[in-house]
Every structure is written in C-alpha cells, then in structure tokens.
Nucleic acid binder design. Sequence first.
DNA 1: GAAGTATGTCGCAAATATACGATATAGAAG
DNA 2: CTTCTATATCGTATATTTGCGACATACTTC
Lengths: 117, 117
Amino acid sequence: MTYAKTTAFTAEQQQLARVAKALAHPARVAIIQLLASKKTCISGDIAAELPLSRTTVSQHLQELKALDLIHGEIDGLTVCYCLNTALLRQVQEQFAAFFAEASADVACRPEGDGCAC
Amino acid sequence: MTYAKTTAFTAEQQQLARVAKALAHPARVAIIQLLASKKTCISGDIAAELPLSRTTVSQHLQELKALDLIHGEIDGLTVCYCLNTALLRQVQEQFAAFFAEASADVACRPEGDGCAC
DNA sequence: GAAGTATGTCGCAAATATACGATATAGAAG
DNA sequence: CTTCTATATCGTATATTTGCGACATACTTC
C-alpha cells in the first residue's frame, strides 16, 4: 500500500488491517471455511470447490500462507493445507476486542449540541 | 480441468468479505477507533488526527458510510460522524461465528494418511 | 452580498489486487 | 528414463484502491 506516513498508525491498527485484508475476498473466506469444515486438509480439491482457476486459488492460498493463517505440508504428490488454529484464536481475540470497543452504545456523545447521533 | 467449478460464493462469504475490506486499511480502523473513543462525533477533526490529507480521510469516511458502518449528520457548517453501533454488533456476531468455526481445534483430520497437520 | 470555513466531489497518478494461461518443478507410475 | 499428475511460479492484462490537489458546495458571519 502506498501509505504516505505508515508510521503514524499503531501496530495494532496495521495488524488488524492486515488480517482484515486477508478476509477481504470471498474466495479466501471460502477457503478458510472449507478447511474448517472438511476434516481433511485437502489441497487441490480446494480449487475444485471454488469458481476460480487453480492458478488463482493457489495465489489466494499463498496469500493466506504469507500471513501464517494456514499451513501447507507437502505430502508426496499433493499438498495438505490446514488452518493455523492457534493464530486464528489470537486474531479472534483481536477482532473481538476491536468490535467490543466499537459497538459499545456509549460511543456517541451523551448530550449533544446539535449533533443528532 | 476435470473440475467443475459450480460453487459460487455464498451471500455470507461476500458480506463478510465486504466488511473485512472496510477494515482492511489502518486509516479506517483508526477512524472507527477514534469515533469509539471520542465522546463526540467530530467531523473534520478526524482528518486532523490522521496522517492523511483531508481529502483522503473524507474518502475513507465515504467508504465506511457506504457500508452503513457510520452515520454522518450535517450540523450547520460541520458534519458529525458516529458509529452505527447496531450494525457493528451485527457484524461482530458475524465475525465471532466465523472465527469460532475457523479456530476450532478439530479442524484438521483426526487420523492422517501422511498429512502432518 | 462578500469573505471565510468546513466538506464533499472530480480527475489524475501510482500502487496494488485479481485472474488466468503458459511454463516450471517434483514426485508417482509405468 | 519417460510420462503423467499435482502444484507452484511467471508474465501479463485488467480492475480496484489509495492519495492528493484543484474545484464545487453550503453554511456562517460580517
């Protein structure tokens, strides 16, 4: 990204944004859900389940792997992908904290001076 | 190529991706946190707090508004932005459900045939 | 009405994301 | 060793995102 002054955002904000970006595409959401639902961490079968070419799916997998959200283990000819549940739980906490803060009802001013929110 | 890619993305996957994309930039995360922390839903002051030009911040605000995550109320000369806490709570649920499913420890196969995950 | 202030919109440039065919790699099968 | 199969990578085309200056809008104040 072409942030002019990236340093001004906190590490938490950048980390949250980074993970959010990983989820910012239906294909990657679908991949994670697939890996979660299937008891087996099949590799190429993932591509078969998605309306995208194997090339594109492979790219999405690499993106998720780059963030360490999934692991890929070569098993002979095929590759087994599986979720990094430990990291996912960490991320889950992060999002929960963010949303807890954001969805608190007291967010807007108690008594306004013209502001209707 | 023997694969039938008939599975389109579900509405839930697309919705989750859409919201995730809104959070996929530190500036937008920062904006939401700002609106949550400040008791007043200041408008242009948001731009002052971010290391971005007023134009760019305005664009990020429009993006959040397009998803209905925030509301903007014109108050004379200034505009008051505030969080749509109701929607945020809904989104929070959505993410919680997603992560609960994704971070379950039983995600990977119980007994493998070579797959090490 | 004129001047000033707060905000949104337009247009552009650079960066990034998305998608996929062609090609490379690497193990399996014969 | 040759061929087939499963994946990853390269190159490339297109679409989207990001950022910002210049302009337009709208309200306030004098």
